[in-house]
Design a protein around this nucleic acid. Sequence first.
RNA 1: GUGGGUAUAGCUUAGUUGGUUAAAGCGCCAGUUUGUGGCAUUGGAGACCGUCGGUUCGAAUCCGACUAUCCACCCCA
Length: 447
Amino acid sequence: MALITNAIKGTQDTLPKESYKIQYVESAVRETAENFGFHEMRTPVFEHTELFQRGVGETTDVVQKEMYTFEDKGGRSITLRPEGTAGAVRAFLEHGLFNEGLPQKIYYLTSCYRYEKPQAGRLREFHQFGVECFGAGAPSADAEVISLANEVFNYLGVNNLALEINSIGCPECRKHYHKALKEYFEQYKGDLCETCLGRLDRNPMRILDCKSPVCSGIAEKAPTVIEFLCDDCKEHFESVKKYLDAMNIEYTVNPQIVRGLDYYTRTVFEFVSKEIGAQGTVCGGGRYDGLIAEMGGNPLPACGFGLGLERLLLLMEAQKTPFPEPKKCDLYIVSMGENANIKAAEIATELRNEGMCVQFDTVGRGLKPQMKYANKIGALYTLVLGDSELETGNIKLKNMETGNETEMTLNDFVDNFQSVVIKDAMSGFESLGVEGIDLADILGGTN
RNA sequence: GUGGGUAUAGCUUAGUUGGUUAAAGCGCCAGUUUGUGGCAUUGGAGACCGUCGGUUCGAAUCCGACUAUCCACCCCA
């Protein structure tokens, strides 16, 4: 296939027949975030490369080998954001949001870019819903963001997600832990895999994450971070758990969780699924008390998470989670001849202004193909408009589901179509035994 | 970056031990019905069989390289 008709490796198109699903997910996360008092922040897709080097951490894989970095025409090194937190912190500092009352609770829905080899649940362009809670150091903040993610899953009806939490402590207790880990792993120096040997000096915590059976076997008996937490960190972690219990959120403590971004401190967590392949982390996050100071601000605690929308969609597909049906065409006007088509345009404009979805012929086809098309797009009603209708002013409105035709004058139709549709929709719902219909829903939220 | 699988129409696939015009279903367009969709039926459009090279009288089929894609490692959402 020609280059220009191929999307870039690791990117995806969302086609019109699928887009209602992602729109539904987006509206769900927005609504949930707003209910928690978080407000949207939008930042540019690209930033100075240094921002991510500093924020995400020079030694991380993300920075070392996965960034889309290029030089712009002014000679600046620019990078497409590989994650959302660094840019959010930058904007927080740049606009002095710390002066607008703490905590500042923000969320974002953005694309992220990482140069990785694509596989199930891993793309080069992917989309994240993320939240950040700036200036909140109490354990209740950790629980709050976890709870927000949890509510998103509840809202969407996603289940079988395991919440795993851990505390990796503050820099002070981690220093002691690193030392202990190194001592432990050095006993097994001969057995560790090559990558883990390298990790031994740089960051022994990563060995805990190794998937090699030998290393993970050794890691199983390694000392856990939790044993090395200082009193403050220990108390913080215990308190987070109390909040989670109070909020009725199930979790397991997994001492093996080590996040790959350098900025995390204390609480880290993941929501993990076994149903979407090897990349099972749908949502990951935690506390990053050192990051704001690292970026040049006055020290402020913070926490947040990132949630992969593609992975969430994969999970919903795997679980056959129902999506609300997308809005269909209320009326298709089958027109014959130019005069009728012009009249159709006039009627369509009027009804569209009332919030109805109305379509008419733009191809120049005959009656039958137009009927077929109306059927294909799922039009609820059709109305045939030809010379005789224009002359007499009488029309037949056809309900495409039942096939019933109702005779009326064209003027009556234009005035009353909206209420006809509503009445039919109501009776449809009643026959299903559904109660408490919100009129605004039926009208597509236009009133 | 390292492995493994796959590559035939828009989609899902068939294609014999290599044999001449590459097949079907769905979808698309149109007719059967001079003004009424779904069902049925008939016809039509649509594929240099991923690309390049090799073996052969002859390659969708065998071999090689490349590319793309999927899955896994690594890492992460």
